[in-house]
Simulated scan of single mutants.
Amino acid sequence: MGVLDTVSELFGSGERHYRFRCDDCGTEFAQRAATVEDLSCPECGADTVRPAEAT
């Protein structure tokens, strides 16, 4: 998780973000989109993205 993701989670940004995980490289990231349709990994560009497991 990046620094911006951490700050957004701690202080909020006023918008709902959803957590996703890339099956190819394992990167977790937040997006405003609620579905994986048309999402790709910001790290490796793969389109094998799925919702992240809740912790």
Rank of each mutant, 00 (worst) to 15 (best):
Glu15Val: 09
Glu28Asp: 07
Ser8Cys: 15
Glu9Ala: 11
Asp5His: 15
Thr27Ser: 06
Glu28Met: 06
Phe29Gln: 00
Gly26Glu: 00
Cys25Gly: 00
Ala34Glu: 09
Ala54Glu: 15
Ala30Ser: 11
Glu28His: 06
Leu10Asp: 10
Phe20Ala: 12
Thr48Tyr: 06
Ala33Pro: 06
Asp47Leu: 09
Phe11Tyr: 11
Thr27Phe: 09
Thr48Ser: 13
Ala30Lys: 08
Leu39Cys: 02
Glu43Met: 04
Met1Gln: 12
Gln31Glu: 12
Thr6Ala: 12
Thr27Ile: 06
Val49Ala: 02
Gly12Thr: 04
Asp23Phe: 02
Arg32Met: 13
Glu28Ala: 08
Arg19Ser: 07
Ala46Cys: 09
Thr35Pro: 02
Ala34Lys: 08
Glu53Thr: 11
Val36Gly: 05
Cys22Pro: 07
Asp47Val: 05
Ala54Thr: 15
Val7Lys: 12
Gly14His: 03
Thr27Lys: 08
Ser8Met: 11
Asp23Leu: 09
Glu37Cys: 09
Ala54Pro: 15
Leu39Ile: 01
Glu15Leu: 07
Ser8Thr: 14
His17Asn: 08
Ala46Ser: 13
His17Val: 09
Asp24Pro: 04
Thr48Leu: 11
Ala54Met: 11
Val49Lys: 01
Arg32Gln: 11
Ser40Glu: 03
Gly26Lys: 02
Val3Pro: 03
Gly14Leu: 01
Val49Leu: 02
Ser8Glu: 13
Leu10Val: 14
Glu53Asp: 13
Glu9Pro: 06
Ala54Trp: 07
Glu28Asn: 08
His17Ser: 08
Glu28Ile: 06
Ala30Phe: 06
Gly45Lys: 00
Asp5Gln: 15
Gly26Ala: 01
Ala54Ser: 15
Asp47Met: 08
Thr55Glu: 15
Cys41Ile: 03
Arg19Met: 04
Phe20His: 12
Gln31Phe: 09
Phe29Gly: 00
Thr48Cys: 08
Gly14Ile: 03
Leu39Arg: 02
Glu28Tyr: 08
Ser40Pro: 05
Asp47Ala: 07
Pro42Val: 03
Thr27Gly: 05
Ala46Arg: 03
Ala34Tyr: 06
Tyr18Val: 01
Asp5Tyr: 14
Phe11Asn: 10
Phe20Ser: 10
Ala46Glu: 05
Cys44Val: 02
Ala30Glu: 09
Arg50Ile: 02
Asp24Met: 05
Ala33Ser: 12
Gly12Glu: 04
Glu15Gln: 10
Phe20Gln: 09
Gly26Phe: 03
Ser40Cys: 07
Pro42Gly: 10
Asp38Thr: 11
Arg16Pro: 11
Thr27Leu: 06
Val7Trp: 13
Asp47Thr: 09
Arg21Thr: 13
Pro42Met: 07
Ala30Val: 04
Ala33Lys: 07
Glu37Asn: 10
Val3Trp: 14
Phe29Leu: 01
Arg19Asp: 05
Ala52Ile: 09
Val3Glu: 14
Gln31Lys: 12
Leu39Trp: 01
Phe20Arg: 07
Ser8Gln: 14
Gly2Ser: 14
Phe11His: 12
Phe20Met: 13
Glu28Arg: 10
Phe11Trp: 10
Leu39Met: 05
